[in-house]
Nucleic acid binder design. Structure first.
Lengths: 414, 414
DNA sequence: TACTCTTTCTTCACCACTTAACAAAGGAGT
DNA sequence: ACTCCTTTGTTAAGTGGTGAAGAAAGAGTA
């Protein structure tokens, strides 16, 4: 029933998060952006300033009326760690409260060994040890698989071979920080909705192309998780009635037709590439004009386009955003994608724009960090208890307990 | 950001709606059900009782502690009209605040003629004229097509041949009552989530089988409308890569394979039935064991099952609910549906239950009425201004204006 | 220069809800 | 009986929010 529920000062955090994401902002602008009354902003910022989390900057040039006094974050009031886990390596990033990556690292990893979980903890701890001192709000973990609740963080993943692995609990014990775990595509979609081209869109379809294919469904401004966090499984939409067998047990799933493996397999059987080539080889072939390589991408694009059109028809999003490692070859996909996609759209959705984002490698981990940085916006309690803890840490921030008022911003690191 | 926004006493209406939907309820139970503090319920019910909308009933048997004092609706504190519009007729129902149908009528109608809109208004007015006197909260209209906003009520419908037809505005002018317009399947899904087997489910997939096929997507306890109200278009999911041409311009859409027309066409070409048979004839043939008729249903079931599995994989609902005129023949669909559906589900969703509801004809119109009766639950402002009006009428109800308390809360009047 | 207009920010009164503590009203031991 | 225990309902104080009115600070313009 969307009550005032959340027993924590959401507004304070929302203000911080907004300034973090959008840079210095005036009070009036904050009120508009957070759709909250100016009166409230006055109160909230007053406390944030006395707490030392915000500082008043210069007046910004007037726009016809009284000039706005901008508010900026007081130095480094918070950072988050984002972790991307895949089968053979881990990427970690340290992200500022404004979403910028400060530091990043990649470590070899084997998700299949028995010590996978403790290895993850060890790597994380050592990464955190190198962090600049200062408030660390929490850790976000993105995994290729389903997560029951961000809060608990129990992971099922065929790709990693994990069944009910308690990632959240384990990490939490190891680092003593709030830990939020989420499906990697959902995390990316959340980042996209916060900082990327999905910003301000109530309904968007975020599609990732990489080794597999995935989707993050942004509906009503929030990522749709489904009953048990499993929403977004685009890879197993049935496409061909009697297509290749899929690991999921079905046949002709989208993934069996357009995943990296599928493309490479076709390349091998058609003799364009040797059996053990990487996707870069296929991309290179297509770039050099090899007609079969081009056609492999084109027909993958066709399958993707047709399937996505079905999803768009079903969900009526405002935009489709495509990103992921695979978009480097998008030019080749597009030849098949565009016509198939548009042809299968119903009139109502026919003009939905498709945005393809250029891809940076840290993006996945950055998305994971966004789990933490987006908690202030979490009105529905998606992030549960851990989200509460993040907000708490944010509220405390640089001014740890004790004196509070009177003593003022104290700033004594500790 | 889920503020307290809605400028109206939501709680009063929520209490009424809950008691309406679930029967007499104790204060403590209300507090739990609406996830609101007992203190608030005390206050809200106090006012509702003095306003004459609620009455205190008998004490209910104790459950170990102080026995609960049940609260019931004071007689007929509100009713709503539900209207189902299809191409060749209109069904209207008068529904009590508890969701029960008091009266129902079907009128011939032609959606294609130029006067379709004024005809609709005329029929509605005459139906209302026969209503028992008393507070009428509003009118809900379910149409086969997309509706921009429930509040405005502008309809696009290929099935009716309507393009941007201002159903809401016109009806509103004709009857001077709040009017809410919505896609019929969405309306049905809402009713299902409120009163039917979807009650209490946060995520459900409501599928209708009739002349066509449709879906209502319940996510996070609410019907997903999409950007411009178009969500739920299940009929145009691509199924066969080179299937029959569809009215939407694509080929091989689900609807081209399993709609009533599609089934009858196949029956005709395979010689089971004469060209102009109705669906009942096909159903009868299948009942009498005609192998081709049986196979027509079976293969339709296969297509439906496979496609639905894709949707379930994508959205991760807690349950699938199938209803509609078509379920009378469900036994025949099922032979194809079950195996195809289960086979195409990924492990995560494999055990999603499928409920088939027996079908009453008024159900569509009842769903439309639920639009009105569910407004109290509308936290996100889906129903907009018209919803506010409904709530206002509900609040005024039997105790029209006048006294209130002394000066009292003056209302947000002018 | 002074008057108006626009935009920003603040103060104030008010409201819906919440938490906390408590009163009320019955069971279940002993 | 009498105490505990459990559940229901109420009261009172506190909090996060709102809208409305007005103060503050500059631009535009006669």
């Amino acid at each position: 029933m969307a009550r005032t529920a959340a027993r924590t000062d959401v507004t304070r955090s929302a203000v911080l998060a907004h300034i973090g994401a959008h840079g210095p902002t005036s009070r009036a602008e904050l009120a508009r952006a957070l759709s909250v009354s100016p009166a409230l902003i006055t109160g909230a910022t007053k406390r944030l300033i006395t707490d030392g989390l915000l500082t008043e900057l210069d007046h910004s040039p007037s726009q016809g009326g009284r000039p706005a006094r901008l508010l900026g974050l007081a130095a480094e009031s918070g950072r988050a760690i984002g972790i991307k886990v895949v089968a053979d390596h881990i990427t970690l990033v340290e992200v500022g409260i404004d979403g910028t990556v400060h530091r990043s690292a990649t470590r070899p990893y084997d998700a299949a060994v028995g010590t996978a979980l403790s290895d993850l903890a060890t790597i994380t701890v050592s990464f955190i040890a190198e962090c600049a001192p200062g408030p660390l709000l929490g850790i976000g973990v993105g995994v290729p698989g389903t997560v029951d609740e961000q809060d608990a963080g129990t992971v099922d993943s065929t790709q990693l071979g994990w069944v009910r692995v308690p990632v959240g609990d384990t990490l939490r014990r190891a680092v003593d920080l709030p830990v939020l775990v989420e499906n990697n595509v959902n995390a990316l979609a959340m980042a996209e909705a916060l900082y990327g081209s999905g910003r301000g869109l109530g309904h968007a379809l975020v599609v990732t192309i990489g080794t597999g294919v995935g989707a993050g469904l942004i509906t009503d401004g929030d990522v749709l998780r489904g009953w048990r966090g499993g929403a977004g499984e685009l890879g197993h939409m049935p496409v061909l009635t009697d297509g290749p067998a899929c690991v999921c047990g079905s046949t002709g799933c989208l993934e069996t037709l357009i995943s990296e493996r599928a493309l490479l397999r076709r390349a091998a059987t058609e003799g364009v590439l040797p059996d053990d080539s990487g996707i870069e080889a296929l991309h290179a072939s297509a770039n050099s004009g090899d007609p079969i390589a081009v056609d492999i991408y084109r027909s993958a694009g066709t399958h993707l386009g047709r399937t996505l059109a079905g999803v768009v028809n079903l969900l009526d999003p405002e935009a489709v955003i495509v990103l992921g490692e695979g978009v480097t070859a998008w030019a080749h996909w597009q030849a098949g994608f565009e016509p198939a996609f548009r042809a299968a759209l119903i009139p109502h959705t026919r003009h939905v724009p498709v945005t393809v984002e250029t891809w940076q490698d840290d993006r996945w981990a950055q998305g994971a960090a966004a789990l933490v940085l987006s908690t202030p916006f979490d009105a529905v309690g998606r992030s549960g208890e851990q989200g509460r803890l993040v907000r708490e840490r944010l509220a405390i921030g640089e001014a740890p307990a004790g004196a509070a008022s009177t003593a003022g911003p104290a700033g004594n690191g500790a």
